[in-house]
Write a protein that binds this DNA or RNA. Sequence first.
DNA 1: AGAAAAAGGTTAAATATTTAACAAATGTAC
DNA 2: GTACATTTGTTAAATATTTAACCTTTTTCT
Lengths: 157, 157
Amino acid sequence: MYLLLFGNITKIMSQGLHLVEEFLKSVDKVKHAYKQMILKVIRESGVDITYEMLEVMRILWNGDGVNQQVLANATLKDKVSLTYLIDHLTKRNWVIRVAGKEDRRSKLIYLTEEGKSLELIFKPHMESINLSVLNQVPPKEMESAIHLLDKVSKEWT
Amino acid sequence: MYLLLFGNITKIMSQGLHLVEEFLKSVDKVKHAYKQMILKVIRESGVDITYEMLEVMRILWNGDGVNQQVLANATLKDKVSLTYLIDHLTKRNWVIRVAGKEDRRSKLIYLTEEGKSLELIFKPHMESINLSVLNQVPPKEMESAIHLLDKVSKEWT
DNA sequence: AGAAAAAGGTTAAATATTTAACAAATGTAC
DNA sequence: GTACATTTGTTAAATATTTAACCTTTTTCT
């Protein structure tokens, strides 16, 4: 009886493991496919920018004048990586660092005119890519998926 | 009339865009949270391995003797990255490259005894992490999410 | 008030990814 | 059978991430 029960438990665990592995694989595939789409847009634009730099610029186009740690959190990057990326964006004259007045440790990141103008190039493509998904997935289903994904990441945080 | 209609369309588009951005953000958060869990396991193990190397080893523990391109596809990595990772796994004596007989361009990757033994260290932790999610998400919901994620990545491929 | 902890940011070194280019081998077209 | 296209894998260079350590500033604790 116990052996039968134990057998059943290991079978259910095995199926559960497989399900979660498949889920993670599907998450990876979404991320990978999206990144390839964006890399294609970058390649076709001829602009000397990387996917990671574009991720940072995207946050800044929605509102600049934020400090590096806030930017790191918004892009899920470590502050070390963020420092590095800001260095490169500064070199390309797309952003500037401005010392914070309230907190002298803090550096605020602002867009330059050139940095702002890049939005005109990339935003339409990025929005088009994002909207294309809605051909396949109704908003209600997407909302459910978001809810589930958030439950998963919450469990692992 | 047309202006009213147009106004509605732009409002729906705007909401759709926001929904997809939120979805992508949630996908990123899942991946990021998972990676941090794994990095913690690596740190606590004391083994000199990286997250990316572990991803490759995980595929090999399920079946070695595959060529590099197959391994690259399975891990969603570019062949250049895969070459680099195999170099490092080889240096650490966890895998070996064996020239293919059927196709002389091909190199098959096999685990060494030491490489196999790493499975005993990492697999239990990785399975525990994966199973922990099932506390929050019923299998049926996870299956639905997988289905949606696959529809999204298919649209972008 | 002063010490300790934490936060914001930087630098160094090792590893990973991307782009570009190349070489050898195999597959396809004619 | 030969030319061309594609595949498999490697190397080089630039960029990105991770770990570790450090410095300055602010916050918290006693």
